[in-house]
């Protein structure tokens, strides 16, 4: 079985974010980046499937600027077999990403695509779903457990009511949630081996698809600062404030 894992290069979760002075976006210059944590979980799951003999080949894909290759190297160090970098400097939206991944999917013919449920920078939670729709494949999102059977995959999903297990026909798109697994720490020999694994680059423009997005970002602003709390003297005052002032804020 062949697996395709898509990984995104995002701001490191520990970085404190600032906006660009012109408020056109988050300042990503000179900031530490990392593999999207949910994608890292996806890679880990793929490796485990390979280690248990179910998958034979894992291909990691990333779309973005040249530095995405670092993210792909992380995936290769974890155990992916080869990587494909779709190079572009444009800021792409989920639909465009899904279109690109569709082209790669048709090229590489994996049976399962695994990716994070969302990226921690844009939090869209759309790409996996859109990709499944474009391909006409089954989808199992927010996976907290994946169980591959003969021609199907059982995906246990974390939903508001609890856990829901779906049976999906292959091929399928699965998006990962936090509790699916705990990604391994890579070992030094694997980091070295990763350098020798194949990494090919294509430009997004060369794929022959329309990458113009229909979405325009109007503005980005910081959340309103929390104002200081007020200490009230007694219950009466508390009730009065709740009745008369808190309502406006809510």
């Amino acid at each position: 079985m062949k697996l395709l894992v898509s990984v995104k290069r995002v701001l490191d979760a520990n970085v404190s974010i600032r906006l660009k002075p012109d408020l056109s976006g988050v300042d990503q210059s000179n900031v530490k980046m990392a593999i999207n944590p949910f994608d890292e979980i996806a890679v880990e799951e793929a490796i485990r499937l390979k280690e248990s003999g179910i998958a034979e080949e894992i291909i990691a894909v990333s779309i973005g600027e040249k530095k995405c290759q670092e993210t792909l190297r992380t995936a290769l160090a974890m155990g992916a077999d080869r990587a494909i970098h779709i190079e572009t400097d444009s800021q792409l939206q989920p639909l465009e990403i899904a279109k690109i991944l569709k082209v790669i999917t048709l090229q590489e013919k994996p049976e399962i695509i695994i990716m994070g449920k969302q990226s921690i920078d844009s939090d869209n939670n759309q790409t996996g779903q859109m990709l499944a729709a474009l391909l006409g494949w089954s989808q199992g999102t927010y996976a907290s457990k994946i169980d591959i059977q003969q021609k199907q995959v059982l995906v246990t999903r974390e939903v508001d009511d609890g856990l829901e297990t779906l049976s999906l026909n292959l091929p399928a798109v699965i998006t990962t949630d936090l509790r699916l697994n705990e990604p391994r720490y890579v070992k030094l020999p694997n980091i070295m081996k990763a350098k020798k694994k194949p990494l090919s680059t294509l430009t997004a423009e060369s794929l022959g698809i329309n990458l113009t997005t229909g979405i325009e970002i109007l503005k980005i602003e910081e959340p309103a600062k929390r104002s200081a709390g007020i200490i009230v003297n007694d219950v009466q005052e508390l009730v009065s404030k709740l009745k008369n002032e808190a309502r406006d804020i809510l």
Partner: peptide
Amino acid sequence: FQLLPEDWDHFEPMMMNALHRLPCLEDAGV
């Protein structure tokens, strides 16, 4: 409280030195 990107290529010669001196590093998750 910020850090700069990992640079494994730059660190590689040092990594080789470290593996030589501490063989147990080979099996340690980074």
